[in-house]
């Protein structure tokens, strides 16, 4: 009785691959992804690429300007800026990814459960987030570091302890909106368990926006880490990190601009690329724009 209506051809590939393909067709997405891949390559291959050991000091060549031997010059105790910047990529990426991983997972779970079940647990988390939001992030992180003491993992925890709030708020709001949709009621009417509804039905619908936020937050956490390192409460001085490099160069900025500027530019370009990738992801994942590409 129905005349067969036209059905657009459906590409049979997984959702993740589909997103990747569309991301690569997006110019911003392609460029930013390439830049990020270069950084990732540098981080992974640091021991092979870096011309010097990042900790090696050469007291005869202190504050040497850029030259054939030291492309980007040396710092106050004669360490090679290029090598330290390459090694510094490792810290930045690791801090960004680990913190985002932890905060996404925590915020997503708390937000989904809160938005779906509501009740006292949700109320409690909501109050806690309001409390956390009252602190400026940097002040909070400095306080936490003072409390926990220095160390790489302590830094991760200090950042994560407040960082989950954004993910929680997004996940909770989106879950709340999805829960009122009738497909959720239909799943309940079929007798599916709450967990299956949460993870099987709701999660796929809120995941895209979480992914976009997660991407954007990687850059944010990198900047925070650099700020903390700059202030001397971040990464321990034994590990080459961009924030502490910028800080060290601050006193000699007019004598030797390269000490601060090179790691600063490295940070700027990476964070910019990550933010652009986030924007591109937002475009690619928006179902309203989906049909056109």
């Amino acid at each position: 009785m129905t005349n067969t209506p036209s059905l657009p051809a459906i590409p049979r590939r997984s959702a993740l691959l589909d997103v990747l393909v569309r991301l690569l067709r997006n110019r911003t997405g392609l460029v930013s992804l390439c830049v990020i891949l270069v950084y990732v390559g540098l981080a992974l291959l640091a021991p092979f690429i870096a011309p010097y050991d990042p900790a090696d000091t050469d007291l005869t060549a202190r504050l040497a300007p850029p030259s054939a031997a030291h492309w980007f010059g040396t710092d106050t105790i004669g360490r090679d800026i290029l090598s330290r910047t390459i090694w510094g990529t490792r810290v930045s990426l690791l801090v960004g990814l680990l913190t985002v991983g932890i905060t996404t997972l925590a915020g997503l779970l708390l937000g989904m459960f809160g938005g779906y079940f509501r009740g006292w647990f949700d109320n409690l988390t909501a109050r806690l987030t309001e409390l956390l939001l009252a602190f400026p992030y940097l002040i909070f992180a400095i306080g936490m570091m003072a409390f926990l003491g220095p160390g790489f993992w302590n830094l991760i925890w200090a950042l994560s302890l407040k960082g989950w709030v954004e993910f929680y708020r997004l996940a909770r709001g989106e879950t709340l909106a999805q829960t009122t949709r009738e497909y959720v009621e239909a799943a309940r009417a079929l007798g599916h368990s709450h967990l299956r509804i949460l993870f099987g039905e709701i999660l796929p619908n809120i995941f895209p926006s979480i992914l976009v936020l997660g991407t954007l937050r990687i850059g944010y956490f990198m900047v925070l880490e650099a700020s903390l390192s700059f202030l001397g409460v971040g990464i321990p001085p034994t590990i080459p990190a961009w924030g502490s490099m910028i800080s060290e160069g601050r006193n000699v900025l007019f004598l030797a601009w390269w000490v601060s500027t090179i790691p600063g530019v490295a940070l700027l370009v990476l964070v910019l690329a990550i933010n652009l990738l986030g924007e591109a992801l937002r475009e690619v994942l928006d179902p309203r724009l989906k049909e056109r590409s």
Partner: peptide, 11 residues
Amino acid sequence: FQNPYSSLNPR
């Protein structure tokens, strides 16, 4: 349900 748009999971 009434609304054929929200009664099916779009994903």
